[in-house]
């Protein structure tokens, strides 16, 4: 069993995002969930993505090398879903186990 399941990681990530956007005055079509995309649905800018991953690393007290997820073929990916982030975090935390 992974140390932190994808569902647990996802719950934590959604909590962090909700903290970040609480005073943003966003008009969300639906609550933030697994399929929510950071840029398209939650209007994240590049600095918000960096803030999010720094917060995720602080929350789980571990560096995770997010640039692997953010970069594709030497360029930033256009967007990321909460689910993709959670899967990455879960894999990284699992891989850190002895």
């Amino acid at each position: 069993m992974p140390t932190v399941t994808k569902i647990q990681a996802q719950r934590a990530i959604i909590g962090i995002i909700q903290d970040m956007i609480q005073d943003w005055d966003l008009d969300l079509d639906e609550p933030i969930g697994a399929n929510s995309k950071l840029a398209q649905d939650i209007e994240f800018s590049s600095i918000d993505v960096i803030q999010l991953i720094v917060s995720i690393e602080e929350y789980f007290k571990q560096k995770m090398g997010f640039h692997e997820l953010l970069m594709n073929d030497g360029r930033y990916v256009d967007d990321l879903s909460v689910s993709e982030l959670a899967a990455f975090v879960s894999t990284k935390l699992d891989g850190a186990q002895p």
Binding site: S45, S46, I47, V49, I50, G65, H67, L70, M71, G74, R75, Y76
Partner: peptide, 11 residues
Amino acid sequence: ANLAFWYHLAP
């Protein structure tokens, strides 16, 4: 821009 501009070069 902002500091995220460098994030892909920084590692």
